[in-house]
Write a protein that binds this DNA or RNA. Structure first.
Lengths: 207, 207
DNA sequence: GTGCAATGATGCACAATGTGCAAAGTTTAC
DNA sequence: GTAAACTTTGCACATTGTGCATCATTGCAC
């Protein structure tokens, strides 16, 4: 595991990017994607348009980045390694990781992004790439945690299947009730926890 | 199944979009994504810039659309319904569908797009959305073919896991040899067929 | 701490892209 | 055949993207 020490310069860069991304996401939620322009973002965040372009290649990218902050992987690593016996299977490890990654807060922000994206076709490709970032982080952790016990073909394939199983939740094919959401009139909705558990049951025992 | 009859107007629209998309993809392969501008595309294809904007919201979208043509779903439907016994499981049906969708030609074009996208960050989000289009088509077919025998929660989850398992092939996490490609110096590469089969074996029997 | 190298932030000019609107050309439906 | 519906296009203009030079800040060696 690379423990890249964060220099002051790096921290400032991260802060700049985060400020711009969060501001972009806020404006998108408040006014819609076409209800503001990049100049609004940089003015509100206190940067120049040129700086925005140094970090994001378009408005969409910034909004997507602001929707979810993929947490520091090192944090997860420490937690995972501490809480799991060394002979834990990759599947069990992913289950544990997902319960950490997919916090209530994360899921709700993600859902807000996804429903925003429904109204703006240019935003849609980014929904999947958010999930993909999580998947990449998971692959990395799997490799560290189980790389010596399981071949990469296995762990990568597994990670793909696990995260792929959540795509239908993202793209709206399935009505899944996130933690904290009320059932409302959706009689056929299942809870996210139920979906998570049945996903792993299928993956564990076969479809 | 909706048999939307294709009127002449619809066919022309499709032709316009296809011509623009294919031209964009060709130019991207030949000169790189930043080696041409939208005006080059429309000039070569014989349309106006304004028409381009009627179909695609940016260059990237057109290039991605040109990379793969998701075949007519009706064609698949007919083939599937004809070749499978009515009690076929969704998993078996997806296996059959994938061998039809993921033709050698399709895979090679997809790979060309993906390696192009590696060099251009703005293109990357579209890689996943190509696979996602296939997944949506598969969900539709599954619903028609097995919707009365299996609940949507099952078929959607399954489709997600199946297509998700191919993400590592797309994003470059895995070295998979496409049909027709030479092994070269990649001693650790497995063939696409092997990957397909081991994927379905894991999904069938559990990880 | 001082000074120099490395790098981030910015302004500017210009190229490229995105969009509303109205006119002109096609297709559809009756 | 004709009118309605729709596609394509031109135009004007708003917005976005990019190369480059410069200034400000940080990193590093001493």
């Amino acid at each position: 595991m690379l423990h890249d020490k964060l220099t002051l310069r790096d921290k400032k860069k991260e802060a700049t990017a985060a400020a711009l991304a969060e501001t972009a996401f806020e404006l998108a939620l408040e006014h819609g994607l076409d209800g503001f322009i990049v100049d609004d973002v940089v003015k509100k965040a206190g940067y120049s348009r040129r700086t925005f372009a140094n970090y994001f290649s378009c408005k969409e990218e910034a909004v997507a980045a602001g929707a979810v902050t993929v947490k520091n992987e090192e944090e997860y690593t420490a937690l995972l390694f501490a809480s799991l016996p060394p002979d834990t299977t990759p599947l069990d490890m992913l289950y544990r990781l997902m319960t950490m990654q997919l916090t209530k807060d994360f899921l709700l922000k993600l859902r807000r992004f996804v429903s925003l994206a429904k109204g703006y076709p240019t935003l849609e490709p980014y929904s999947l790439s958010i999930l993909h970032r999580l998947q990449m982080a998971a692959q990395q952790l799997l490799a560290e945690f189980a790389g010596e016990r399981y071949p990469a073909e296995y762990t990568h394939l597994l990670a793909g299947a696990v995260y792929g199983a959540f795509v239908p939740v993202l793209d709206g094919s399935m009505n899944v009730l996130l933690p904290g959401e009320e059932p409302g009139d959706q009689t056929d909705a299942i809870t996210f926890e139920q979906y998570l558990n049945s996903t792993f049951a299928y993956l564990r025992n076969g479809f």
